[in-house]
Amino acid sequence: MKALTYLLIGILSLSACTSQNATSIDNAGSFLCIPPEYAVFIGETGTSSAEFDSQGGGYNVSIFLNQNTVSQLVPEYKSETNIGGRVRKHALYITLSPSEEINQAVPDAPTKDLLDGEMQLLAVKADTFSWQVIQKTAKNQQHWGTCADLPTEPKSFRCLRDLIIEGLGLTYPISQENLHVYPAIDALLQEKVAQWRCASSGIPIEQQL
């Protein structure tokens, strides 16, 4: 019944998902069961797709939390911003990928503070559209996400935060105005992923589409 009431994401490697030796218990806790009201399926319908890349883009399901839900769960989260008359809503749309698709090496390059140093986020200087952000921890530095300037007046930027939770890569957009609450968003996602782990074996997402 569970397979009918939940949407399942296989986050094992394909070989593990399809292994005939894998038993129910082997797979326990290895799939994510997203309640339907928070799941967005990525369809693959349409015309010929030969001109598009046949690979890349992660899993076929995303998580969607509307802006009101997020602002209830994350204190100080701005569900809407207005920069120079440019109003934007800030729902949380979280894409899911194998962690290796989102992880990035930390370059040995000059960096600058992104936000007064308080968040320990450093922008890696680059003459490109977007720039990598790394997080300084007590022990080392690690990839945090990427950001790019927006065409706004006054100037602002938006980021894509890359978060890895037990091999699952989660990426969500975050505006400059909400950057200070990213630890709370990360914690919320940690909690949701823990809550949404399937209790028993799941069906690989390929069979759900």
Partner: peptide, 17 residues
């Protein structure tokens, strides 16, 4: 990140997202 088969060429999935 050199995703997919050609760097910079997006899949339909990436475009949808």
């Amino acid at each position: 990140k050199k995703l997919g088969t050609e760097p910079g060429l997006l899949s339909k999935k990436q475009i949808s997202k």
